[in-house]
Nucleic acid binder design. Structure first.
Lengths: 258, 258
DNA sequence: CTGAAAGCGCTAACAA
DNA sequence: TTGTTAGCGCTTTCAG
C-alpha cells in the first residue's frame, strides 16, 4: 500500500503541493477554509508527515545523541532519564548508545551520530578510551559536544561533573549532625580520581567536625558484590551493630557506584 | 563553512555524482583506481555521508524506537541495555523515550517515532494507559510493534513477558536446596498480577518442596524504601538473624522491583 | 566502467 | 491567497 504524501493530497484536492504543505503547517497565508479541507483529507487518508524529508530539507535532525559506558548502571540510567526529560520538553528526540567501556564501540557510535546529523552529542567516556582523536576530529568539525562525569582532560569542551569531595563531605557532616559516632567509608579503588575525592571529603569532614570519631576505611570495588562483601567483613567484627545501619550502608554503596 | 557532499567531490574530480556514490559504496562496477582516488579526496575533505538523505531515498530509518515508563527503573534500564546491544549488533540505532507513566506522553512519543519512520517500536505501556486507540491506530497502519513486560491485553500483537510465577518458584526451590529453613517473601501489592504470580510461585514451591517451612509473607510496595521498611520490620522480631541473609534480601527486593 | 537524469517528500523563494 | 519551481544529498535505473 502506497503511503499518503503531501502530493497525494494535492492531486486529490486539485491544489498544489505547496498549498498543502503550508496548510498543514498552519501558515498564515492560507485561507481557513482551505486549511480545514486539507486537514480533513489528511486525517482521512492517515497522512503522516515524513520527518526524514523535512530534516533533509532543513539539514538538521532535532535528535540529540547520548553515549554512556553502560546503560544499566544506576548512575547513568538516572542521567539518561534527566537528559530525556529535558530533550522531550524542548522537542528533541534522544538517540542512545552504550560503549560497554570499549573505545572502538564508542568511536563507531560517535561516528554514527555524527552522520545522523545529531544536533548535539552528550557523552561519558569509556574507561578504555585513551586516545582522543575521535573526539578531536568531531570537535574540529564543529560538532556540539558535552562531556559528563567521565570527563576527558585536555579537550576544549564543556563538561558536567560531580563534586565528589563536597558530596562525601556533606554526607559525613549530615551523619555527624545526626549524632552518629561510628562512620565507616566504603572506598573505591584509589587509582580513580572520583574515589580519591570521596575519601578526601570523608576525611576532611571527620577532621573538621568529628575529631572524636575514628576514621574507618574499607577499600574495594564499586559493584554490588563489593558492597555485599564489605558488609560481610563488617559483620565479622561487629556483631552487635544495628541492622538498620548496615542496610543503609548497603543502599549507599549501590547508589554511589558509577 | 559548506559541508562536503558527494557533489563537491564529483566536481573536484570531474566525475559524475553517481560514480562517486558507487565508489563510496564499494560498488563492483567501479574501477579500483577510481575508488581509491575518490576515497582519498573524501577523506581529505572530511566527507560524511548524509544518512538522512539516504534514509529519505530508501524510505527507512534503521532506527528502532523504545518507550518505557521510567528509564531509571533498574528493570527497564536493563531491558534497554539489552535492546541497545542487539540493535547495535544488527546495525540499528535506538531512539529512546520515557512516558513517565503518562498516557498522553506515551502517545506523543509513539507518534513521533511513527513519523520518524522507526523500523519498529518496542514498548512497555504506562500504568495510566487505559485507552488503546493509539496502539490500534498504528497497528492498523502496519507499524511493527512489540510489547514487553507491561503488556496490553486484547491487542493482536507480539509481546515478551516474564514468567513471574516460575521465577519465584525457582528462587525458592534454590533456597530450599541450599538448606535454608526460613524463607520470607516480600510481596508486592496483590492488586498487581505480577505480584500475585510471584506469591503463587513462592507458595507453590513451599508446598511442594518445603512442607516443613512455614510461609512468611510481608506485603508492601515495590520501591527501595519499601525494601528498607521490610527489613526494619524483620529486624524488630528477628534480632538474631544473620546479617548476610538480610543484606541478600534487600538486594533481592531491589532487583525484583519493576 | 562511467554518466545523465529522475525521484525520495518536503519547504520556500519567487511569481502570479 | 495560491502555484511553479528548484533543491536538500543520495541512490538507481537506463544508456552509453
Amino acid at each position: 500500500m502506497k503511503q499518503t504524501t503531501i502530493k497525494t493530497i494535492a492531486s486529490e484536492l486539485h491544489l498544489s503541493v505547496s498549498t498543502i504543505s503550508r496548510a498543514l503547517n498552519d501558515h498564515p497565508d492560507i485561507h481557513e477554509d482551505t486549511k480545514k479541507i486539507v486537514r480533513q483529507l489528511a486525517d482521512k487518508l492517515g497522512y503522516r508527515p515524513n520527518i526524514i524529508a523535512r530534516n533533509l530539507k532543513s539539514s538538521k535532525s532535532n535528535q540529540i545523541g547520548v553515549i554512556v559506558p553502560e546503560i544499566r548502571h544506576d548512575f547513568f540510567a538516572n542521567a539518561l532519564s534527566g537528559i530525556e526529560e529535558v530533550a522531550y520538553q524542548k522537542g528533541y528526540t534522544v538517540i542512545l548508545a552504550q560503549s560497554n567501556e570499549d573505545q572502538k564501540r564508542e568511536e563507531i557510535n560517535l561516528n554514527s551520530m555524527y552522520q545522523h546529523r545529531a544536533s548535539g552529542i552528550i557523552i561519558s567516556a569509556s574507561q578504555t578510551t585513551v586516545n582522543y582523536a575521535h573526539f578531536e576530529k568531531l570537535l574540529e568539525r564543529g560538532v556540539k559536544m558535552v562531556f559528563f562525569d567521565r570527563v576527558v582532560n585536555g579537550l576544549n569542551v564543556s563538561s558536567v561533573r560531580v563534586d565528589d569531595r563536597l558530596s562525601a563531605y556533606n554526607a559525613v557532616k549530615y551523619l555527624i549532625r545526626k549524632g552518629y559516632t561510628q562512620i565507616i567509608h566504603f572506598a573505591g579503588p584509589q587509582s580513580l580520581e572520583i574515589c580519591r575525592n570521596r575519601l578526601a571529603g570523608y576525611k576532611e569532614a571527620l577532621l573538621e567536625l568529628g575529631v572524636d570519631i575514628a576514621p574507618i576505611v574499607i577499600e574495594g570495588g564499586m559493584h554490588e558484590i563489593d558492597g555485599y562483601n564489605h558488609v560481610s567483613k563488617l559483620e565479622s567484627f561487629r556483631k552487635g551493630q544495628s541492622l538498620r545501619m548496615l542496610a543503609s550502608l548497603v543502599f549507599q554503596t549501590i547508589l554511589l557506584q558509577r
